[in-house]
Design a protein around this nucleic acid. Structure first.
Lengths: 340, 340
DNA sequence: CCTGATTATGCACAGCAGTGCAATACCACA
DNA sequence: TGTGGTATTGCACTGCTGTGCATAATCAGG
């Protein structure tokens, strides 16, 4: 097609060029690509062939100027390569695409100051919604988002009671059940392994476990150490298991911590899991099911979370009643806890 | 601020509103947020305070209409929750943000037909570049992208010689070195475990290993089974290790396959790695370094790939010389291969 | 205080697509 | 052929920002 030689790596073809080639008005082109608009079959055909020949694609940036919705949803995340964040990201992008939205991923790279920049990006691109997977954006920025008609959805963080929509998992219930698992297995010396991140869901699990133990008259050793990663679990094991009185039941607030803990317990302390030591995790990342671990844990309801988020963005649920929800994390029984 | 009552969750504040409030022209607002534009300190200050009060953020969608660059880069990926894809995603978003670009993630969800839709999204949003992490877009669409002035970058797939920029890792060299590792360890019965995905890099590793073995006068059992996942490695182990003549050296074209293979070999066949069986993987995902595995493997040069991709997008390297590159995957020595 | 040079500002337009409104073409029917 | 009604089409405007150009303001220097 010699006629295309004009676009020599220059710029995108516009609706006007398509109109010229098809011999119709620019409105006709616009209507052809708008559902429910009135176009005759003849012109539609002319437009479509011209568009095909020129490689035309509607400019969603310009469309976003006119329409109320840009179709963009920003996902703010740190440690995106962590198994559960990766799973969350994968699930969210998939569900968003199913309702014709597209995900813009903003990586805060663990840097807490970057969260603010991330939320600003969200506003710059006129995103329909901001979904915060990790990090704590300043309240003033959240207000700005909401004032501008943008939806804000927080996953697993309940710092702000007013404003954003929030989806939580029931950390308390799971942590209490973890304690019961250990008790039924006959354990009497308890420990909790957490990280120094101090996010709401992590501390929620920790305090609920400690509370349940205290109610039953037991003490709990708590280790909060390092980032929420495999090595931290391993190092926590070194700290806990070299003591004179070892714990026999360890609740790790994250699977990643649990796997690190298990490996250190087995390979450097030669402990038998579950006979000498019981371990329970949280998240149910794929690795927890691998033959080397068979970790008993609680399933993060990723699909359900994504569904709820998409529903909240579409605005199906409007009332303050559906402003937030809490989903339950069901236990996944494997072999890291002694059968009763 | 009563003046903001107009924006009751309606729409975003525009530069005009800021101009009105600051008592300046709309151009002044625009120039305030444009680097190198001529604005006096006084008006800049007035604009900035007004913008702050109104929560104004420049509309990058509209800016993308004017400027040659939208600042958006689309990442097309399948199986984003797989460890190495997640790592790649995390690294790319981080590097892109460092040069003031933002990543739009399009999940093809493994569906090969969705790759076409994904690339179209890229065009719809006038992305500066399309980065394909997995999947094989139709050649015609790639042409459309390039004709519209969009850069196309393929990672680890060399189907198209002409047009897109390509960054590869040196699969051949790594696979040949894997064979040498085994030989130095004294192994004589070889196998390759791959998946049925048949992507260029996977088959490249497989054929290079087989070729190296053949040159040395050895035969290789090849298993191509299932998706590129942990279970497939496990199932491949069941297939290979229940034979009368077991292999003593297994090259798994992916760490995930290798870990599944190792677990099955140890836990259901009670084999001692590395004494009875040597295993080498590829990618160096974090799990490969865990104490339960200590897998000897080849490091996917993720950071280097990301750097090169960003460079290719910025257009630093223009000539056909830098149209493609091949980075080497260095060996990571751990304990899954017998020392000589 | 005046002149020339420099800087700051505003106007108006471009970039792309969607849509209300008015005008036109089309169809069926008498 | 005329008429009423409907389906198409085109015009022109909107949404938001960046920028060339012309004009106004500022400044330095004599």
């Amino acid at each position: 097609m010699a006629s295309r030689s004009r676009n020599q790596g220059k710029s995108f073809t516009s609706a006007r060029e398509v109109a010229e080639r098809a011999g119709v008005s620019r409105s006709a082109v616009s209507r052809t690509f708008t559902d429910g608009a009135s176009v005759s079959a003849a012109t539609r055909h002319k437009v479509l062939t011209a568009a095909e020949e020129l490689g035309y694609h509607v400019n969603h940036l310009a469309r976003g100027l006119i329409r109320e919705s840009s179709g963009i949803v920003c996902l703010i995340v740190a440690d995106a390569n962590t198994p559960n964040h990766a799973k969350m990201l994968e699930t969210l992008t998939r569900h968003l695409q199913a309702v014709n939205k597209v995900a813009m991923v903003i990586n805060t790279a663990g840097d807490h100051e970057r969260v603010e920049r991330a939320v600003r990006q969200t506003l710059h691109y006129r995103a329909d919604a901001t979904v915060v997977l990790s990090g704590t954006p300043p309240a003033s920025l959240i207000d700005t988002c909401i004032n501008n008609g943008q939806r804000v959805i927080l996953i697993n963080r309940d710092e702000y009671k007013k404003g954003p929509a929030i989806v939580m998992v029931d950390n308390q219930r799971a942590a209490r059940e973890a304690f019961l698992m250990f008790r039924r297995a006959g354990c009497e010396k308890f420990a909790v392994v957490s990280s120094s991140a101090g996010t709401p869901s992590l501390t929620g699990r920790e305090t609920a476990f400690v509370a349940a133990a205290k109610e039953a008259g037991f003490d709990v050793s708590v280790v909060r150490h390092g980032p929420t990663a495999y090595v931290s679990g391993s190092e926590a094991a070194h700290m806990l298991l070299s003591r004179a009185e070892r714990p026999t039941a360890v609740f790790c607030v994250t699977d990643l911590l649990a796997l690190g803990f298990m490996d250190a317990a087995r390979h450097t302390f030669a402990l038998d899991i579950p006979n000498e030591l019981c371990v329970v995790g949280f998240d149910d990342i794929p690795e927890a099911g691998w033959d080397s671990y068979r970790l008993t844990t609680f399933r993060q309801p990723v699909e359900e979370i994504a569904e709820w988020v998409v529903g909240a963005i579409d605005g199906k649920q409007q009332g303050a009643a559906a402003q937030s929800t809490v989903l339950s994390a069901e236990p996944v029984w494997r072999q890291s806890v002694r059968p009763r």
